[in-house]
């Protein structure tokens, strides 16, 4: 064990890992986050707290992480490179660890043009690759990015990154994953998987190169509420593919929401069998209440407990 992260413990135990996601609110009350923590607590090993996702101002991921810790849910704080330079990011890493947070997910971040402040300046002082390296360097070498020694307690984070098997160029996607692992990523959460065939091709290449032995890959699953949502995601979100057969299946269903959950359960049962997949990350956008049902139906309940 390199850290005190509960997520790392579950991976080390060899169990198939389950995480979910909580988007913090656009106001200063943590009530909703407390509620979702109660909903998810017994059904997931950890929950991501997004970092101003889609570039919309919300409660910060670190503050959200503290709220989750207080509710005994292991937070995975997301940190994007969009809003902070290397000084602010390292300061936040120190601060987050001092507040009891020990699991992090490093990302580039959605471009601010999508958010509620499209006239803002983006930072991108460093990219996600450098952020992964920095978190590892602070932990393993007790050094800041600049090489200066951390003289007292170093922040000890279990480090995750993201991968999108559905972005282009497809042939470079495994290369980019390998670079992230080389940079120090210990677990990976993928973009939402709808095109299972493409994900399987991706994982074949991952395993052929032996990357699955160096990192824990969690397959991203999103239950869809309607065929319109499915089509919207496929057509309007960069780097997302939603096959027609999923759209058609939802369209033909009597109860689209129920069918959306059925599809998610089938997808999870499918990815469980794919070599190299060590867990599932359920992104039930504005549908967190359904996570327990999905987890139970996939035979992933109860979750492992450690002393």
């Amino acid at each position: 064990m390199n850290t005190n992260s509960h997520l790392e413990k579950v991976f080390n135990s060899g169990e198939f890992v389950v995480s979910a996601e909580i988007g913090p609110p656009k106001h200063a009350s943590a009530e909703g986050m407390h509620h979702y923590a109660d909903v998810l607590r017994d059904y997931v090993d950890a929950a991501n707290i997004t970092d101003n996702q889609t570039a919309v101002v919300r409660i910060s991921s670190i503050a959200g992480g503290v709220h989750l810790n207080n509710k005994n849910v292991c937070p995975i704080i997301q940190m994007t490179c969009r809003d902070r330079n290397r000084i602010a990011m390292q300061a936040d890493l120190l601060g987050a660890y001092s507040l009891g947070i020990n699991t992090i997910l490093c990302l580039s971040g959605d471009h601010q043009i999508f958010g509620n402040h499209p006239t803002s300046k983006n930072v991108y002082d460093i990219d996600s690759m450098h952020l992964i390296q920095t978190v590892r360097k602070m932990r393993d070498e007790k050094q800041f990015m600049c090489g200066e020694e951390i003289k007292n307690q170093e922040p000890r984070f279990f480090v995750g990154a993201v991968a999108n098997p559905f972005g282009d160029p497809f042939e470079f996607r495994v290369d980019r994953l390998e670079k992230k692992v080389e940079a120090g990523a210990e677990f990976i959460q993928t973009q939402c998987i709808f095109d299972m065939e493409r994900f399987e091709r991706y994982m074949e290449e991952v395993c052929r190169r032996g990357i699955d032995e160096r990192v824990h890959i969690m397959a991203g699953i999103t239950p869809l509420k309607s065929w319109k949502a499915a089509r919207y995601i496929g057509n309007n979100v960069g780097g997302m593919i939603v096959p027609d057969e999923i759209v058609e299946r939802l369209k033909g269903a009597e109860d689209q929401k129920a069918e959306g959950l059925n599809i998610a359960v089938e997808q999870i049962n499918h990815v469980k069998k794919i070599k190299g997949v060590h867990g599932v990350h359920i992104m039930a956008i504005a549908w967190e209440e359904k996570v327990p049902e999905i987890v139970e139906r996939c035979g992933l309940y109860p979750r492992p407990k450690f002393d």
Binding site: G109, H111, N122, V162, G167, D168, F172, Q191, G238
Partner: peptide
């Protein structure tokens, strides 16, 4: 995003 190490997930 001035990335130095390859395309982000939005490509």
């Amino acid at each position: 995003k001035s990335l130095l190490n390859g395309p982000c997930g939005g490509s």
